[in-house]
Design a protein around this nucleic acid. Structure first.
Lengths: 154, 154
DNA sequence: CGGCATCCTGTATGATACTG
DNA sequence: CAGTATCATACAGGATGCCG
């Protein structure tokens, strides 16, 4: 049974042909599968090139290209570091901009966990209270609006 | 300045090479730009083929293909309907599964709005109280964990 | 209006081999 | 370990034209 949002949306004007909405821009920049998986790994705590490539299961070529893009886009930062007695290495660390993407990625995972077949996969937990963490729509007054209560405003 | 999540993540085992995490599956199914934009339109209230194609600015061929995929994946439902005196038409209506994806798409838009250049774009509002709606991470106890308070558990 | 078929280009990704 | 280079395949998406 299909569901309708509050219908005020339909009254808005057309999107311009060349679509410049934030969703579109974001998808063009970071919307590839490999990019998303690399970000997932970054949230998991991965920082080194080899670990990214191995965990995501991508070739080094793709890994290198996407990591370069993510650094260029400011979601990751490439920093040299040196362990005592070792040669200089580089790590890829999350920036604030990269961290801000976490809800989007996590929301996607939340959807997949609910609607697609999957193996047992890790959950996010709030360490302070031990409760599971989810992504949700919430208005600044703290309410959780039902779909029918949402309106799109210009 | 880079940011680290709680480090317990790094202790987990490798992801299998063929990655079956929900994020990956979701990206493979609905991760294309055109798919996301079509879903955005569905949330805006668009239901007819022509409106989808025009608003997203895609060719009919791509629109048809993606809509077919979205129906097959259960995010949209294709239903015949008839206006008085008109021939039978079809509309594409959101299913619950499709509606569940809204936080993910909205979170992506929220990120884009904050971190990418964009024109003035519509906002989501909670009709009951008039307050703007955002996507956020929240634990089931109602807290909003800071990034350092998040741990990944198996 | 609501599509489908065909051709074409660009990108995403894998496989493999090589370098500092 | 951290990549680069090259080749090959698959899919995304635009352009165009046809159909009921």
């Amino acid at each position: 049974m299909p569901i309708q949002l509050a219908g005020k949306a339909a009254e808005r004007g057309n999107s311009p042909a060349g679509d410049h909405c934030p969703v579109d821009r974001a998808m063009q920049l970071i919307g590839s599968r490999s990019t998303m998986l690399l970000m997932r790994e970054a949230y998991y705590g991965t920082t080194r090139f080899d670990a990214f490539a191995a965990r995501v299961g991508m070739t080094e070529a793709v890994t290198a290209k996407r990591l370069r893009e993510l650094v260029a886009a400011g979601l990751l930062e490439r920093r040299p570091y040196q362990e005592p007695g070792q040669r200089t290495r580089h790590e890829y660390a999350l920036t604030e901009r990269g961290l801000d993407l976490m809800p989007a990625l996590f929301a996607l995972g939340q959807w997949g966990r609910k609607h697609l077949p999957h193996d047992g996969t890790p959950m996010l937990t709030h360490d302070a209270c031990g409760a599971p963490v989810r992504v949700e729509l919430r208005c600044t007054e703290g309410h959780r609006p039902r779909p029918e209560e949402l309106v799109i405003t210009s």
